[in-house]
Design a protein around this nucleic acid. Structure first.
Length: 153
DNA sequence: CGCATTTGACCTGCGC
DNA sequence: GCGCAGGTCAAATGCG
């Protein structure tokens, strides 16, 4: 694998490239939250043995403990960050009049998930939650790294 | 023709 | 134990 270069904290690799977006109207990173491994603190010591017999979905859930939530101000909710996202679900959320969309990274072997919903109070804000870490680089990131520093100016 | 999206059903966890 | 809410699956559909 060529992905061994992956940063110790892949969460920080998440970067936005407004220039890559075609109909960008207004885009600003207003706030962000970072939820790291500690969120899903293993409490298995108190769990019964039966929990070990659960499906592997549970195990995967434990693997995907890396969570990053971004609150962005944008008119488009799904932004192209270079990864290939495949929508796999949509749900109306109780807290908000807006539906929530679920995406998966469709790259092979990458089980990163993404949850997108609009802010309840201000529709111009979009809450994007990444879950898990990519085991590969974004094709666009690689492309970007190959360009001279002033290529975007 | 192949792939992504849509959408309702199904599953699981949690609170009462 | 039951009901609710959130999350995922999978068949059908649409699009390139």
């Amino acid at each position: 694998m060529d992905f061994s270069r992956e940063s110790s904290n892949p969460n920080l690799n998440i970067t936005f490239y407004p220039d890559n977006l075609d109909p960008v109207t207004e885009f600003e990173l207003s706030d962000y939250l970072m939820l790291d491994g500690g969120v899903f603190e293993e409490d298995s010591s108190s769990q019964s043995i039966a929990s070990k017999c659960k499906t592997e979905a549970r195990e995967k859930k434990l693997e995907q403990r890396h969570r990053v939530a971004f609150i962005t101000k944008s008119e488009i909710e799904v932004m192209d960050d270079g990864y290939k996202w495949r929508k796999y679900g949509k749900k109306p959320v109780k807290n908000s009049p807006n539906p929530r969309n679920y995406y998966k990274c469709s790259s092979g072997g990458c089980n990163v998930k993404k949850r997108i919903e609009r802010d309840r109070d201000d529709h111009s804000y979009v809450i994007t939650t990444y879950e898990g870490s990519h085991n590969h680089y974004s094709p666009f990131t690689v492309y970007y790294n190959q360009m001279p520093p002033n290529a975007w100016t």
